[in-house]
Each structure stands twice: as C-alpha cells, then as structure tokens.
Simulated assay, not measured.
Amino acid sequence: MRFKDVFSIIGPSMVGPSSSHTAGALRIGRAARRIFGQRPEIAEIMLYGSFAETYIGHGSDLAFAAGLLDFEADDMRIRDSLLLAEETGMHISFTKGKGPFSHPNTVRLKLSGGGREDVIVGSSIGGGNIVVTDVNGFEVNFTVRTPTLLVFHRDRPGIVAEITGLLGGGGINIGFMEVDRKSRLGDALTVIETDESLSESLMETIRGMQEVTRIGIVDLTAKGVV
C-alpha cells in the first residue's frame, strides 16, 4: 500500500503508545463494530504475530475494546475501555492464534449478539492505517480511509451494476470496488469505497433490493455511535 501523505506515516492524534499497536488496533475495532452494525454482546479476539506478543504492553487490548465502543483514537476513555465495555454488558476475550497470518499485526474478531455473528480479519499496517482482509469468509482488501459500503447479496447477473447505478444516481463517486462470492449464483459480498458519505435514504434503497440480505457501512468520518 502506498501512503498518500506524511500523516499516514507519522500517525493520527491518539492516546499512545504506538500508532500500529494502539491507533491501528482501535481502528480495526471500530471498523469491525461498524460492519457488525451494533454493539456486540461477545467479542472473541484472536491475535497473531506482534499483536499476540506485545498486545498488553502496547495497550492493544484497551485499543480493541475502545474501537468496539466506537471511541476516537484521542479519546482519554481508552485507558478505561475494558472496564467501560464490561459495564455495557460486552464480554471481550483475547487469545493468541497460531498458523499463517497475512501481516505481523493481524487480528481475527468474532463478534456476536442479537442473533448475528460476524468474523472479521484485519491488520494494522503502520501509521494507524489498517487493511481488512476477510469478512465472514469473503476475501476482501479495503482500508476504510474513506466511507466504505459492504453489500451482502445473492449473486445474479446485473446486481452489481444496479448497486453502482444507484450510487451514481445519488451523486456518489466510487473510488474502489471489489466483489467476492462463495459460489456461482450463491452468496456474494460487494465492497465499495466512496468519496462521499451515503445518505440514509440511499442506504435504505440498497438495503431494500430483492437480492440484498444486509448492508454494512464503515464511515469513520461520520460522528456518532452505531
């Protein structure tokens, strides 16, 4: 990945100590929460590589909890995030994973609650930047640097064109798009990074499409907790 500016390298304004292990971990947690769409009741967090070896000393455990609470990287409540998560009824556990992983700072989050379960894999790649590489078994590669729409749908001819047509009609410019599917005419996931935030009415229109099973929106430029 090419960094777009000096702030991508030096990292964001944050509660430290590490842009990779703290700010990046928090950003992964926030992205996972936004994909899940609500506060999870249970978060099972499996850490790989450097995350697994140093997560307590670098405050990554606090950062993941803060991200799942949808805190900003400079929120002083990060220091008490595990306690605050527990007070909301969220149960968080940490384990060390084994086997191959895509990046030294990789994490697998299994979120559940309200009859839903999502499994999200992401990596912190430096300067507080992240990449999400797997969502519920779909292979993806997105960064959430801009508003990101996830559309879970059944695969059929023309559906991706219909989705992009709705976005274009709503004045939304697409910066990046990828599609993965589990089988021909089976379950699919379309991920679209956009230049603008999506309106509630546009999201409702996409959500109401016949083949769409659910949508997720990761817009870290927008304020407010989901």
Score class of each variant (00 low, 15 high):
193 E>F: 02
225 V>A: 12
219 D>A: 03
19 S>M: 11
194 T>G: 04
82 L>Q: 11
173 N>E: 05
12 P>F: 10
104 P>R: 03
104 P>F: 04
35 I>K: 13
84 L>V: 09
212 V>P: 01
178 E>Y: 09
52 A>H: 07
95 T>I: 05
62 L>P: 03
93 S>N: 13
30 R>Y: 13
101 F>Y: 04
148 T>C: 00
132 V>E: 00
24 G>A: 12
115 G>W: 12
1 M>K: 13
193 E>Y: 04
144 V>P: 04
59 G>Q: 13
219 D>L: 04
180 D>N: 06
104 P>M: 04
206 I>Q: 00
124 S>I: 07
57 G>S: 04
3 F>C: 08
41 E>D: 14
167 L>S: 01
97 G>E: 10
25 A>W: 04
97 G>V: 06
92 I>H: 05
115 G>K: 14
145 R>P: 02
182 K>S: 01
98 K>F: 10
87 E>L: 05
110 K>V: 15
186 G>V: 10
162 E>H: 03
118 D>L: 11
88 T>K: 14
179 V>Y: 07
52 A>R: 06
43 A>G: 06
210 Q>L: 11
129 N>Q: 03
159 I>E: 02
122 G>C: 04
160 V>R: 01
153 H>L: 12
20 S>A: 10
73 A>R: 05
183 S>A: 15
20 S>K: 08
5 D>Q: 11
100 P>Q: 12
54 T>A: 00
181 R>K: 11
217 I>M: 02
217 I>E: 03
167 L>Y: 03
121 V>R: 07
133 T>N: 03
16 G>W: 10
204 E>L: 01
108 R>F: 01
126 G>R: 08
40 P>M: 12
132 V>T: 02
189 L>A: 10
145 R>G: 06
144 V>I: 06
112 S>I: 09
13 S>T: 13
198 L>Q: 05
88 T>P: 12
7 F>L: 10
211 E>G: 04
91 H>Q: 15
209 M>S: 06
163 I>H: 00
